[in-house]
Design a protein around this nucleic acid. Structure first.
Lengths: 197, 197
DNA sequence: CTTTATTGTATCGAGTCGATACCTTTTTAA
DNA sequence: TTAAAAAGGTATCGACTCGATACAATAAAG
């Protein structure tokens, strides 16, 4: 639904401005963090995504959807990251069109050292835990509303997905791909995620 | 102060991830919003900044500081915007090195029509006012903490600036530039802004 | 009056990005 | 079963961003 330009609330404008400003700061910070390793902000984001997604969501197309880019751009970015030895491609066993992107040890270490960036660590660690919780909760609510209001994929973790179920033995099972999931699995984000509201 | 990589709280990581995701969404949305007019996200941000800054902060250098870019990049961006008739440059009367960037009617109309972007309007207008207020407040707190923890310029409005004072006639006065300010002035952001805590 | 800092422009190379074309594999439909 | 459509992925092109560097003009400091 598109609202008329004549009825935009003050709060909406305020929220937009804050997010825009945060975005600018993050970009500058991320550029600096990546520069140390000769990486662009987008390349850092790709590595970060691959470090938190599950095995059904580590393909070039999934990265494309997550970052909202075109597959051509992503293909090019991946080529660079592969040539730097930060990730490798493995062909899918069942579907020969699909490849799985796996972070190398070097790639994983780089992300652990880089994200979250210094700027955010400096700031967040200064805040009382209560405020951290409030901020995280507000950000989450804004994000979910944005995704739902615009019919975008949620890319949430399996734990909160409607396809995830618990067996009577206490194990997890995804009813979409019809495969069992481990305790680690359900902490990762999935491109097929759908909120269980 | 730089914290060791071994003591990063869960909440910090969570907050970072949310901001990163919001950032990605904003970028995609902003690209789409600008595409209609053949503008890049950064160009839109420059126009937006010029629409909310005061007359002491509308120079190329101020834009450079605000966006965290280099002056070369900004100079190039401004050239494009000027060639499209969205802004014009006016030399400063007192200091011939400085130019003032003024949005044209076309430029101002473009920003009013474009910002906040459709995606944010769609989402925020769905939220109850109470939640909007909470989110805005959390974002503001995070932003201020980030700026202070990293010694960055605040770019706040004159209303909240320590240099701003009220005369006994009820008028506003900036003790830094030693000039009177109007009621409209004190709603605009300034590159010399310093929180009055 | 000379040195230094500030504001701004011009140019170069590396990289992002969207668009398009193309190839291969899988899925769907006839 | 076979032909058509859809999906995943790569390659290439042009427009643009960006940092770095060099340079010019003005202002401020000594």
């Amino acid at each position: 639904m598109v609202f008329s330009r004549y009825y935009i609330g003050m709060k909406t404008t305020e929220i937009y401005s804050f997010v825009e400003r945060l975005s600018e700061l993050l970009k500058v910070d991320s550029r600096q963090a990546g520069a140390e390793f000769g990486l662009q902000p987008v390349q850092l984001e790709v590595l970060h995504y691959l470090s938190i997604c599950n095995r059904y969501s580590d393909s070039p197309m999934a990265v494309t959807e997550y970052l909202g880019l075109t597959k051509g751009t992503v293909s090019q970015t991946l080529k660079v990251l592969e040539s730097k030895g930060l990730l490798s491609k493995q062909l899918d066993v069942n579907d020969k069109r699909i490849s799985h992107l796996k972070l190398s040890v070097k790639g994983a270490r780089l992300i652990n050292k880089t994200i979250p960036t210094a700027m955010f660590v400096n700031a967040c660690e200064l805040l009382p835990e209560k405020n951290q919780t409030e901020i995280a909760s507000s950000l989450k609510q804004l994000l979910i509303t944005l995704l739902e209001a615009n019919n975008l994929k949620t890319f949430g973790v399996c734990k909160s997905c409607r396809y995830n179920s618990k067996t009577k033995e206490g194990n997890y099972f995804c009813r979409l791909v019809e495969q069992p999931l481990s305790a680690d699995d359900i902490q990762l984000i999935c491109r097929e995620h759908s909120n269980s509201d």
